[in-house]
Design a protein around this nucleic acid. Structure first.
Lengths: 205, 205
DNA sequence: TGTACATCAGTGAACGCGCGTTCACTGATGTAC
DNA sequence: TGTACATCAGTGAACGCGCGTTCACTGATGTAC
C-alpha cells in the first residue's frame, strides 16, 4: 500500500496537518473542511477520498494527538523509574509540555467537542493515555499509609484537573488575562504542594 | 425608561436567556443569533435593536454570568467570616456550585472564546470576581509562616485551575468519560489535600 | 523497450442550507393638546 | 375624554457568503503483456 506517488503524495496526512494548523490558529470553531482543503492545495471534494467528513477529520487529528500524548507520558513515566516520585513528577511535566508543544492536538482532543467514543481506535488510545497517568498515581500512592490513602484514581483525577486547568486558564492568552506566572512553574509548584499534602514530600522542602 | 409595554415587553433579556439556553444545550459553537431570535419568538433582525450583533449578545450573557459569579463568591466569602479557612472553603464550593447551576453562563464566560476585554463592563466585573478569589487566598495565606508562604496570587491560581479542571473534565458528560467521583467531592478532597500541603490543615484530618 | 489498458486520486461544477446583517416599512404604544 | 401625532420595537424580504456534501468526469500513475 504505497502512499508515495499519485497526485499529491500523502494528502491524508497533509489534511490532518492543515486541520491542526487551523485549529491551533482559530480554535475548533474556526476550523472548516473547505479551508483545510485549500491549505493542503486541494479541492474540498478531495477530502472525501480520505475522510467521511468534517468530524471524521477532527477525530483523526485528536487520535494522532492522543497517540503522541500517550507515548510522551509513557516515556516520561519510564524515564523516572525506579523512583515512583520522579516518575510521577515527570508525567506531570510531560502533560504541560505536550499542551505547549502540540496546541492543535490538545485543542482537538479536549476542546473540539469530539467524543472519545467517535471510533474504537480513539477510545482505545485515549484510555491508554489515562492508564499511564493512573499507574503513576498508583505507584506513588503505595508510599502512603493505607489508612490515609485516597483511591489512586481520585489522586490522578486531581492532578489531571489541575494540569488541565492550568493549561486552559494560564497557558493560553485567549481570555485576555495575563498569566501571573509561567504555567510550568505554576503547575509544578501546585503539584508540589499537593504531594506535600499527601505526605509524599517533606513538609518544608 | 420603562421596559414594560411595547411589543414584547423585555426582548433584550429574553434574547440573553435564549442564548444561554442554546449555549447550554449545544455549546458555544451551536449557538446562532437566528436561533436565539426564533426561540424568543422574534425575527433575527429584531436582535439588532438591542445588540450590535452575535458577539455582543454572547458578551452580555458572559457579563451577566460574571455578575452572578462575583456576587455568589462574595456572599460565600462573607458567610465564612471571620474564619479565613471557612471563607476560603466556601468560595471553593461556591465556584463549582455556580458552574453546576449556571452552565450556560459558565460556558459563555470560559469556553465561548469571548475576550474579557470585549467591553469595559465585562472587564470590570471579571476582575471583581477574581479579586474575591484572591482576597480569600490572601487572608488564608496569613496563617502560613512567611518564609514558606507562596504568593497569594499563585495560591489562588492553583485553586482556580483545579476548580476549572474539575468542571471541564468531570462535571460535563461531553468527553464520553464517566466521572469516577462526584465533581463536588473530587474538588473538595483535592482542595483539602492542597491546604494540608500548605500546612493549613492538620496533617491527618 | 513500447504500447494498451485499468485504476483511482483529485477536479470542477453544482446543490441546498442557514448564517449574519441591511433596509425600508408598519403598526402598536405613548404623549400632547 | 377624544383626537392627531410622534416614536420606535419588531417585520419581512432580500443580500451575499461560505459552508459541507454529491456527482460525473479526467488524466496522471502503475501494471500487464
Amino acid at each position: 500500500m504505497g502512499k508515495r506517488g499519485y497526485h499529491h503524495g500523502n494528502l491524508r496526512q497533509a489534511l490532518v496537518d492543515a486541520a491542526l494548523d487551523l485549529i491551533e490558529q482559530k480554535g475548533p470553531t474556526g476550523f472548516t473542511l473547505s479551508e483545510a482543503a485549500k491549505l493542503a492545495g486541494v479541492t474540498p471534494a478531495a477530502v472525501y477520498r480520505h475522510f467521511e467528513g468534517r468530524e471524521d477529520l477532527i477525530a483523526e487529528a485528536a487520535r494522532q494527538g492522543y497517540e503522541i500524548f500517550a507515548d510522551v507520558m509513557q516515556f516520561a513515566y519510564d524515564s523516572g523509574q525506579p523512583s515512583a516520585l520522579a516518575a510521577f513528577e515527570a508525567t506531570g511535566r510531560a502533560y504541560i509540555a505536550f499542551a505547549r508543544k502540540h496546541p492543535g492536538h490538545y485543542i482537538s482532543m479536549f476542546e473540539s467537542g469530539i467524543s472519545v467514543n467517535h471510533s474504537p481506535e480513539l477510545a482505545a488510545v485515549s484510555s491508554r493515555a489515562r492508564r499511564v497517568f493512573e499507574r503513576a498515581a498508583e505507584d506513588l500512592s503505595r508510599h502512603i499509609p493505607p489508612q490515609k490513602r485516597p483511591p489512586a484514581s481520585m489522586f490522578s483525577a486531581h492532578i489531571w484537573a489541575m494540569s488541565h486547568g492550568v493549561v486552559e486558564l494560564y497557558a493560553r492568552n485567549s481570555p485576555g488575562t495575563q498569566s501571573p506566572f509561567p504555567p510550568e512553574d505554576l503547575l509544578e509548584s501546585g503539584i508540589g504542594i499537593y504531594l506535600r499534602g499527601l505526605g509524599l514530600l517533606p513538609p518544608d522542602a
